[in-house]
Design a binder for these strands. Sequence first.
DNA 1: TTCAAAGTTGGAAACATTATAATCTGTTTT
DNA 2: AAAACAGATTATAATGTTTCCAACTTTGAA
Lengths: 161, 161
Amino acid sequence: MAAFAPQGEEKRLVEALQKAGLRLTPQRLAICRYLVNTDEHPTAQEIHRVLKEDFPSLSLATVYNTLETLVSLGAIHAVGDAGDDRVHYDADITPHINLVCIRCHRIIDVPHEALSHLEEEAAARSGYRILGARLVYYGLCPACQRLESEKEKHGSTSVAA
Amino acid sequence: MAAFAPQGEEKRLVEALQKAGLRLTPQRLAICRYLVNTDEHPTAQEIHRVLKEDFPSLSLATVYNTLETLVSLGAIHAVGDAGDDRVHYDADITPHINLVCIRCHRIIDVPHEALSHLEEEAAARSGYRILGARLVYYGLCPACQRLESEKEKHGSTSVAA
DNA sequence: TTCAAAGTTGGAAACATTATAATCTGTTTT
DNA sequence: AAAACAGATTATAATGTTTCCAACTTTGAA
């Protein structure tokens, strides 16, 4: 979701840190760069694993701290319901849609322009200053719909844990 | 978010279990009832703590199992990015907006009709069968906006972890 | 150069969630 | 009605993520 204008995006994150009066340490810069150069929604652990190749001393705590900082600055989003149970991070804070399959947990991202005016309306009604948005639809992807109807033809429809 | 028509809502969850060929055990029924009778977004632990008063033998595992079952049936939603890092559950799967303050983590729920046609459009484009939706706006609530401008007047703007 | 503040590190601790094995319950089969 | 069986629940152990903490390092200012 995040790799349309990597340089500009990276700048955005870096500027967020600067504006807050925080230091631009190599660790923080590397984390920002990683976030804007991936289309995945990485977890703290993944970021740490990859960046450790360049920064062997990089601590997991630093990764968590930096992500938490970026989230509280509104520069990135924490996405906590991907289906596994880690927190994923998304550097794309423009309005877009996540389609989450309730069965296989796959996620598709869909950019969506129409969200902008909803945003303005919600801001006006609530007095919030809005910094980003995420619309999540839950449902069955085409493949899983097929599997569901298979099951109905046959016997039990159980989905128990 | 969930307490408009508790009886009907409870029926909806129970029917979802039935349709899937699952048993309507007292534990499952109690969990369904709890979910539809609260405006909060409870965690598994909270549900367990409360229901234990009536079902002293109720196991945490059963609560997790039942919630997972309901989620995979599409009857409720798992909300994983409330700011703390537990998974919260929401029995309201109609389109509505969550406004999340990035600073104090408070959440406001706002029903929103305009989401329905976005839903249809997304379904048509992607082939998903959509069962529910959640639009999350991230931003600063009025109180936190005030705090932010205080800080700008004074000295540092730091938000570090 | 010295000092204080900010940042990082590594490891320990906390905690939510999942997996496992045993037990229980209800239903169907004989 | 007894036996067999699948579905559920329970208690507990194991897993793995995230947070916490104290020590150490770096940076910037006096």
